[in-house]
Each structure stands twice: as C-alpha cells, then as structure tokens.
Write a protein that binds this DNA or RNA. Sequence first.
DNA 1: TAATTTTATGAACGATCCTTCAGTTTTGGA
DNA 2: TCCAAAACTGAAGGATCGTTCATAAAATTA
Lengths: 212, 212
Amino acid sequence: MAADTQTAFEPRKTPVQARAAFTVEAISEATIQVLLSLGADRLTTTRVAERAGVSVGTLYQYYPNKQSLLFAVLEDHLDKVTAAVEAACERGRHRPLLEMVREVVTRFVDAKMERADISMALYRIAAEVGGPALIKRAGQRQRKALEAMLQTAPDTNSPPDRFAIEMMCSAMGGAMRFVLEAGAPPAMVRKLREHLVLLCQWYMAGVTGGRP
Amino acid sequence: MAADTQTAFEPRKTPVQARAAFTVEAISEATIQVLLSLGADRLTTTRVAERAGVSVGTLYQYYPNKQSLLFAVLEDHLDKVTAAVEAACERGRHRPLLEMVREVVTRFVDAKMERADISMALYRIAAEVGGPALIKRAGQRQRKALEAMLQTAPDTNSPPDRFAIEMMCSAMGGAMRFVLEAGAPPAMVRKLREHLVLLCQWYMAGVTGGRP
DNA sequence: TAATTTTATGAACGATCCTTCAGTTTTGGA
DNA sequence: TCCAAAACTGAAGGATCGTTCATAAAATTA
C-alpha cells in the first residue's frame, strides 16, 4: 500500500519546455493561494487551474489527481524545512549544548517563516491522505539529525534520549504553529524565536544535567 | 457574521423524549467514529446516520447541516478541556509557582487523554469553518484563567507576561498533539505528563526570575 | 380508545466536482 | 519553411453528496 501511495501521487509528465515549467510552477502557487483563501474543502481542480491561468486539462497533464496537488506542495515544503534543520545540526556538531540548541531552533523558525503562507496552508491538509506519512518521515529525519548532533556535545556525558528530543521538537512545532496562525507581526516572530531558544535550552539543560 | 456562524450551527430541534436523546447522542458518537475511521473528506451525512443506526432525515431534524455536526463535537470537547484548566487554576491560587504549573499541566493532559479519540478526531477539522474561532475562544479562556492564577503566586513579584503564557500553552498543545497522533501507550503518556510539567516549570521559572 | 405531538424514514432533487479525451495551438529542430 | 512532438483547451461523462419532504410509526395526552 506504500507503493500505491507513492505511484498514485507521482507526476504524470515532466515538463521539457520552459513554458511547461512555468505552468507547473503557476499551478503549485495557485494551489497554495486557493487553499489559503477558500479552505481545503472549497479547493477544486477547476478553481486551481483558473487561478493559475490554465485549463483543467493542463493541470491533469502534470498532476494525476487532486490529492497529488496538495501532496506535492506539502512534500516540497517539508523537504526544505528538514534540510534547514539538518544543515543546522551539521554546523552545530562539537559545540556546547546550548549553542547547538540555539542554532537549530533559530534555523527552524526562519525556515518556517520564509514561506509562512505555505506553512499555514499546510496545517489545513496535514491530516489528509498522505499527509501524516510525509510529516512522520520529515520528523524522523529531523530527530535523527538532532540526535547525531547532540551526541557530539562536549559539555555533557549523558545526551538527551529520544523522548526528550521528541518533546522538544513537538513543543517547537506547537509554538510555531500558534504564532503563525495568530498572524504574528515580525516583532512577535523575533520574540518567539528568542523565547523558543530559551525554552528549548532550559529543557535540554534540565534533562541532561538535572536541575541547572 | 458572528451571528450567522452562531445561528447556522445551532441545533434545529431539542429532543424531548428519551428516545430522541439517545438518537442525538448516537449521532454525535457516530460523527467521531466516522471522522477517525474515514477522515474528514469522506465523512458524509448519510454515512454518519448509517453508523448511528438512523436515517439521514433523522439526522437533519437535530443538526441543521453537516458542519454543525463537527461544530457540536468540537465545542463540547473544548468546553470540557477548558473547564478542567479553569478548575485547576482555581485550585492553584496562592500556591508556589512550580506547584501551579504542575497542577495545570497535569489536569490538561488528563482532560485531553480522557477522550483521546475525540482529541485526535478534532485535529482533522480544526481548520474547517467555525473551528479556528472556537479554538481561539477556548485558548483565550484558558490563558485568562492562567494569568489570574499566576498573579497570586507568592514566590515571584514579576509574574510571566501574556506572551510567555501563550508560549507555554502552545508548547503544551504541540507536545500533546504529537503524543496523541503517535498513538502513545499509557506508559508514554505518563512520561509525557512528567516531562511536560518539567518543561513548563523550567520555562516559567526562567521567565520570572532570570536563570534559575 | 381517539387525537395530537414527537420522532423516524428514505427516495429523489439539485448542485458540485473530479477526471477524461478528441481536437487545437504552440514550440523547436531538420 | 515544414513537421513531429509537446503543450493546451474545455465541454461532457459519471459519480458523489447535501438536503428536503411527503409519509409512516411511535409515544404522549385527553
């Protein structure tokens, strides 16, 4: 069934001319905009095509069905955020624990905010078919990178266990979501970033060394 | 438009006979079960009625439309959780800061877990029409209760500001969600409760008194 | 028991939507 | 310039779904 999920969402045809590449990009952007302006239940293939300036038939040349539209956008965004976290984990190796945490949290918030509109749109389809699987996979990649980094911390000999890492990640995700959905202004985002760093640092310090 | 949202979701008729009361309860339960087993997009009024053991017509005698089904379940659950938090805040008044936090976090986790199935089902419709408004309202009530309690803390003279309270709430909500969606066994829930208490305590201690 | 109110039924209507495909237009190379 | 491949069009099929309403059954009241 995993194979079904894969193939059912794969692109039907890859664009070879520049014109087609623009079309695919336009459809992808239109998907996000329709999702944000009308919601998931009023998102129709015809509406997305209309917004993208093409006809429905064109849409179906590159996306096999409606769900693959959402699937593609979700996958792309999760990949970018995960890549940002992995890169941060790479840079953080062998640095003090608190610096590690600061690096990762900061990059995570920035990656999410870079396309805040996509982040918000995706909260609306995260529970649809294929969504949970993708999210779970991205989460595992992120936690794996985090775990590898934390084991290189020079200032603690009992690195946080898997559960603690999951706690931190989900607390981060929850706070991020709240601020996004509150339509936060830039100043609030900066404050979120600072406080999220502190929250994660205090938690990590606590679980590694008892009360700090 | 707020009035429209209200009236459009209000029950059409209130049951007077015991038979009808059972019917309404059965429809409500069936809504949750269909939501969990088939997802939000495959939830149809006919299917819910079928699962409840009644006909579609009966359903429409008590619920004016499909959305009111989801709306009613969501509202009921949020009310229960919010009431639990408010009660905890009442009990926590004038006690030390860390005890306050423990009380609230513990009660929150327990209230969510009491009907874990409903909690999970609701994540799938939280973004639908009416959902965000209800959630925002419940969040405000909870934060208000928290703020009132925290101001009575005897062991700090600079109680946490609104932003810090929101941070704590959303971190709590995020971690709760993660554990629920991971299908956590009871042992993991207990660990979550402990760690969530610690995470919130450390954060609160940090923002009130600098580094603890 | 007879009358009235409450509750339940489910076929049918109207509307929306996903998806296809036969035909047209555009592109890029020979 | 000409042609084959690529890209695009949009009306129409087929299916699902939300909602209604005329009718019937059950419960309550007189």
